[in-house]
């Protein structure tokens, strides 16, 4: 009995470190950055990264290695402990969040009732880290970027959380659940985007774009106005970790979109045994890439908003829409299902 428990523990550690865990998501993050850059280039009628590895596949890795080998500067007036720990915490938080995703089965590595709320908290904590990273170097441009990132958070946080919570409405017919596993299993036969969640998916895409600080919401790092925003003072290893954290966050948010609205790994788990895990992983990655391509199209099709335009838009349209969608998903849809089955 003792031996079996040890082996089970070892498998859990390997799962966390290697396959659906850290290593998998680091590689997936770099791969997603490549897809993003390549597809973005395609939309602009160019070819994008080409000579680094086959079709430029290794470009994100080359950027990462180069930055790791560069000089690491800490500005004189910086609050050093905060300045240095922000990149590490950012990467750790994104990887932690990724553990909840159901990559190779209907259940993530970490799964418990209410983990949807934990994910919403982690997404907000990542922005608090941006704020600290912008304030700690005691430099003008990062400070402006930090202020903007928090102001922007006020705009998109409510729609983001509302769209995530709206997705839990799928589980109402099955006794209700606030866990990723419950949401995924509820979509076994019918993906939530096909029903009352289509609006929620659109809101989620916009909010995810803002969370990732990509065009049109790259206001906190607007390079034409405030140098490089909150990342201005970061160089070398710290910048490399920040960029990697951003890539993992990109992979995580695409995966979350696929999980909540596109049915996660279904119908992969129907295949029995080890084949089920492999098929699930492939289906999950393909669905995540679909979400990524949509995000890239938004990035290529739009230009940067001003911070006041963004907050205005968020409070005048996005917040009311998300509340309307939440009502639709939580009240109207179950009522209709109830009436139809009477």
């Amino acid at each position: 009995m003792e031996g079996e428990a040890v082996i089970q523990e070892l498998i859990d550690v390997l799962r966390t470190l290697l396959f659906p865990g850290f290593l998998f998501f680091v590689i997936l993050g770099l791969f997603f950055e490549w897809i993003d850059r390549k597809f973005y280039a395609k939309l602009q009628n160019r070819v994008g990264p080409l000579y680094t590895g086959p079709w430029g596949l290794l470009q994100p890795l080359a950027d990462f290695v180069k930055l790791m080998a560069k000089e690491d500067i800490v500005p004189e007036g910086a609050i050093k402990p905060i300045f240095s720990s922000v990149p590490v915490f950012a990467l750790a938080l994104s990887l932690f969040a990724a553990l909840f995703l159901p990559v190779c089965g209907p259940q993530g590595i970490v799964s418990f009732p209410g983990d949807v709320i934990v994910l919403a908290v982690v997404l907000t904590l990542l922005v608090i880290l941006v704020f600290l990273g912008g304030l700690s170097p005691a430099s003008r441009y990062p400070e402006v970027g930090a202020e903007r990132s928090v102001l922007q958070l006020l705009g998109y946080e409510i729609p983001l959380v509302a769209s995530i919570l709206g997705a839990t409405a799928m589980t109402v017919g099955l006794g209700g659940s606030l866990s990723i596993e419950g949401i995924v299993n509820a979509q076994r036969d019918w993906w939530s985007i096909l029903g009352f969640q289509a609006l929620g998916f659109a809101i989620f895409l916009l909010a995810a774009q803002a969370e990732l600080e990509r065009v049109p919401f790259d206001i906190p790092e607007a390079e034409t106005e405030i140098v490089a925003g909150w990342t201005t003072e970061y160089s070398g290893k710290k910048l490399a970790l920040l960029r990697l954290a951003r890539d993992v966050e990109l992979a995580f948010l695409c995966g979350l979109g696929a999980t909540l609205f596109l049915g996660g790994p279904w119908p992969g788990p129907l295949v029995p045994g080890l084949g089920g895990a492999i098929v699930s992983t492939i289906i999950f990655v393909i669905k995540s890439i679909v979400v990524l391509l949509l995000l890239t199209v938004i990035r290529a099709a739009m230009s940067r908003l001003r911070i006041d335009q963004m907050v205005n838009f968020a409070w005048k349209y996005l917040v009311p829409l998300s509340i309307f969608q939440l009502l639709l998903a939580v009240v109207v849809a179950p009522l209709m299902i109830h009436l139809l089955t009477l």
């Binding site: 850059r37 994008g48 990264p49 000579y51 430029g56 390079e223 034409t224 140098v227 990342t231 003072e233």
Partner: peptide, 12 residues
């Protein structure tokens, strides 16, 4: 960008 060249905003 084919060669990995990117224009960045910050000297850092």
């Amino acid at each position: 960008e084919r060669f990995g060249i990117r224009l960045v905003g910050s000297p850092r």
